[in-house]
Design a protein around this nucleic acid. Structure first.
Lengths: 213, 213, 213, 213
DNA sequence: GATGAATGAGAATTCATTCAT
DNA sequence: AATGAATGAATTCTCATTCAT
């Protein structure tokens, strides 16, 4: 390869990078705009034109990235869900004892939701509302597999109650959504202390108690 | 009471019932239609015309009963919330021991939601979505006071954790909403057995455990 | 006729008078309500229900008196027009000299419009707007005949310009409508002095001037 | 200017014309459609859909140009008023003697209204009806300033009666509106001769007469 | 790829009119 | 005669989507 062709290739790559970048920037702006507007207005009360304006692009451009409004919301949902589960399972290994593992994951869930409030509200909104396609919803649940595996391990070890995953999720994870919603609406403060307490309650609910209560 | 006065009274009652009926039947049909359509399509994806059709009345007639769509949803929300809280606090007295009281109320909540699935889904939808006016939302929360009082009593007695009502609610009541949603969507079965288990988890999460876990 | 039948007949008459009265009261209330609402909102922006409410009757009752909304406005227009022309031509005889006659009529027009501002605005509204049926409009013009006769007399006598009635009306009468409108909107005050001046201008415009201007 | 720069300039102008066209053609079609339909049906009896159809655009497109129906009528009113006053004051200078100036303006008013009958009827409709916002109405009056100035000049010179502008307008200009209305409705013909006569009447009404009448 | 003007179907709401009482 | 609840057609306005540039 001579210098000339190398430079050509380089220029192409840079150009391509920039092109990718540009498109990724837009895609990201689009996602954030969608999240922001959906949590404050609801999906159907959020026009595509406003999403476009918030993302600083033209309404027509959205359709270069997504087939239609439903496709947009489905994809944003999956994107956020994925980002969320990626965050909460980082560093997870199945060597760690069950309780410790659960504690790590639970705090990572809590901290993520406290840091990324908009995303948390968005997920809560989508999960309690019929706006997401069944297919996408099921796709989103899959990502939780490590948590389900952990619970199964805990059940085998006699540490965690023999409830089905839905029930365990309802008590161990779902309440956090309520607390984030409340925090957003009622100035309820979720301090480190009350976070600790919430964790204890989550764990108390799913662990097996040796003594009768 | 003699026969005559009895019949008079009866006739009055019947007449009164009929008088109530005319508009109350419509109002009820309207409420049920709204609940049904909102839980399956979402509020903003449910046109007034469809609500009218479902309620077997003319679109214009809705506006004789409610000022506008927002007024309709606010009122339906408050109606359902009230009906719900009325049901779960029936027979409640503050003489009963805390745990027993909680158990009674919890089971009444669970049973009501299992029996009135549509209403339960509707409340869940409204509570996790920005469609209800702040004012109506706050109005709706008030009805829960007896439960908050019970918790306070339990805290004074050293039976219930010293968490704020939001947190207690998040763990003791909110998970049920998830289970109803799941049941509706995934054919997850909420049997008597799993109901018992769910109650145990709720109670374990909020009660104070004597021994360290 | 014996006493009994006399009393019967009397009672009938009284009853009949009352009945007439009742209906006339409603008819009047209806007319006044229509005038009031039309001048402040316009005909098409005034719902029948509001007219009914303003007249303290039920919407359905309007249709006992008038075939429909168009029929209502036509009749109100003719009623007001008739009342107006009746007022301005009272005491008119064609013995009086032309200028004096004109002065009397002009002042009666002005005074009537100043006293019955609502009616004046209503007529102005109807006359500059396509809401009145052609037929009713033509019917309304007929009532002005005495004024046209007076002008003809004036023209024969060489006192009034040989313009057609439309032109004479445009200058002698129509300007008053503008002044009433202005008075209503801009707090322009129509004092006795300016009324005198307005009359002079009306007369100057239609009278024949001996000298070149 | 050489050929090259001329062609450049021409090309720019054409491009500019075309650029203007796209939206200006629509805006104009919209204005004309509004005028036409409002004068024959009245504002509130003219649906936006009909205006759109008349202007050969889609109903939704109107809302790209005007915020709502009220905004549309306000803007059309101001547009027509401006076009009208621009036409009647062209060539006006305050060097010309008062009477001559008035004659020129009066004839320009008359001729404009005779030529642009639709616009004239539209202005008459708006000016005698509560459909225009107060703000826009006041804005529209401002344009008449030169005429008010002329009258003031005439009053200082002792040529024009010391009446306030409203009164002068009522007699000198307003009658024309009546004549145009009449011409439109009753086939009353406004010939050159009667136009001359109308002018004389307008002038007679506002000028100061040396001799008592 | 990107734009944003234009579309037109569909939404909320109003209101003239009817009709059972 | 009088009512006023009910109707449903018609109106204003919105917004997902397209397409010429």
């Amino acid at each position: 390869m001579n210098v000339h062709s190398f430079l050509l290739s380089l220029s192409y790559q840079i150009k391509h990078m920039v092109a990718l970048s540009k498109s990724d920037i837009k895609r990201n702006a689009l996602i954030n705009a969608t999240i922001k507007l959906v949590i404050s207005n609801g999906f159907h009360a959020t026009p595509m034109s406003k999403i476009a304006k918030e993302a600083c692009i033209s309404p027509g451009t959205i359709y270069l990235y997504y087939k239609n409004k439903q496709d947009l919301i489905n994809n944003v949902y999956l994107h956020v869900k994925q980002k969320f589960t990626q965050a909460i399972f980082q560093n997870y290994t199945n060597n760690t004892p069950v309780e410790e593992s659960f504690k790590i994951i639970w705090y990572q869930i809590a901290d993520y939701r406290l840091k990324e409030v908009a995303e948390a509200l968005f997920l809560s909104h989508c999960d309690n509302t019929p706006i997401i396609d069944d297919e996408s919803r099921k796709e989103g649940i899959k990502h939780l597999q490590p948590l389900l595996d952990l619970w199964e391990r805990g059940q085998i070890d006699g540490i965690i109650k023999k409830a089905c995953p839905y029930v365990l999720y309802a008590y161990a994870v779902y309440p956090l959504a309520f607390l984030i919603n409340a925090k957003q609406r009622d100035d309820y403060e979720l301090t480190d202390e009350s976070k600790e307490q919430a964790f204890k309650m989550a764990w108390d609910s799913i662990k097996i108690t040796e003594h009768k209560s």
